[in-house]
Simulated scan of single mutants.
Amino acid sequence: MAIFVNENTKVVVQGLTGGQGKYHGLRNRDYGTQIVAGVTPGKAGQDVDGIPVYDTVEDAIAATGATASFVVVPPKFAAGAILDAAKAGIEFIVCITEGIPAQDEAKVYNTLVRDYPNTRLLGPNCPGIISPGKCNIGITAGEIAELPSADGPNVGIVSRSGTLTYQALYELKQKGIGVSTCVGIGGDPVPGTNFIDCLREFEADPETHAIMMIGEIGGSAEEEAAEFIQANVSKPMSAYIAGVTAPPGKKMGHAGAIVSGGKGTAQGKMEALSAAGVKVGQNPTEAGELMAEIVAGL
């Protein structure tokens, strides 16, 4: 199994006719993902390398039966694109767009919770999701992900950092450790999917035998995850928290990665996770080595 997406997931790319949409959409298709349609208002009837384009998400769903959407549009239009997909009945939306105003993110998140509870948003400002060998939606390079084995043990990965998502995948690939699903939740202040959402799914997934978590400074998501882990997660975990040397009050890369009021520090997050039984590495490579030790003992 896998979480959120699998080999049966049918994906529509909102923005397929744009440069980034075409590049990543075709890469996802070439990986084996079922990219069944594109959506660009006013360009219905066209196609992108054989993938039909429709004016609306509703039209694309009616023609193809798509259940997931990959949103690759500029910040100005991203919130509207996400809500268009939700209104059309899309169950899983991946938005990689960076630079969406936090107010727009908050409005979209609360609208989804209130009006479209059956729709899950991943992102925005995230690398997406890959269930190796089954489905890849987003900008992750499929070749750095080790396929899961039938008998395991396989690892599930959840990360706030895009770049560290890739490193976590490659650290495990170099060690021959299969990955069930890797989820990049993004580093913005209002993510559609958080650590706890993913941890809950990994805990219930029989194909996932251990979990690797990559966090970073800012906010309280990692501390909240630690509480959840202590009470609800039985599978062994390793983790890494980025930003140990970040000066207080400085934003480090992501909009949500800022230490303020003495809260959200790397040290505090590391201590919370350690107290929950997670093996915490001092750098990404060490987190991978700790996971290798965990897997060797399963």
Rank of each mutant, 00 (worst) to 15 (best):
V71P: 01
V71L: 00
V72G: 00
V72F: 05
P74N: 07
P75T: 01
A78L: 00
A78K: 01
A79H: 04
I82M: 10
L83C: 03
A85M: 03
A86S: 14
K87F: 00
A88E: 02
A88Y: 06
A88F: 04
G89E: 08
G89S: 14
I90W: 06
F92V: 08
I93H: 00
V94D: 05
V94C: 08
C95W: 03
I96V: 15
I96H: 04
T97S: 10
E98L: 04
E98V: 03
E98Q: 04
G99Q: 01
I100T: 01
P101T: 00
Q103R: 09
Q103V: 15
D104S: 06
E105L: 14
V108K: 07
N110A: 08
T111V: 12
T111R: 13
L112A: 04
D115Q: 14
P117N: 05
P117K: 05
P117Y: 06
T119R: 08
T119H: 02
T119F: 04
R120T: 15
L121S: 06
L122Y: 08
L122M: 14
P124S: 08
P127N: 09
G128Q: 00
I129E: 05
I130N: 06
S131R: 05
S131N: 12
G133A: 10
K134P: 03
K134D: 11
K134A: 12
C135E: 06
N136V: 10
I139G: 01
I139R: 01
A141L: 15
G142V: 13
G142A: 15
E143C: 10
E143A: 14
E143Q: 13
I144F: 09
A145P: 07
E146P: 03
S149L: 07
S149M: 13
D151P: 08
D151F: 05
N154A: 07
N154Y: 11
V155Q: 08
I157S: 07
R160N: 05
S161Y: 09
T163R: 08
T163G: 15
L164R: 03
L164N: 03
T165Y: 02
Y166S: 08
Q167W: 05
A168F: 07
A168M: 11
A168R: 04
Y170N: 09
E171N: 15
K173G: 12
G176R: 14
I177W: 10
G178W: 10
G178P: 13
S180M: 02
T181C: 11
T181P: 07
C182T: 12
I185E: 12
G186V: 06
G186F: 06
G187F: 12
G187N: 13
P189N: 15
P189K: 09
P189R: 11
P189Q: 12
P189M: 14
V190I: 15
V190D: 09
V190M: 14
P191G: 10
P191D: 10
P191L: 15
N194P: 02
F195G: 13
D197F: 02
D197H: 06
C198M: 07
L199N: 04
R200D: 14
R200G: 12
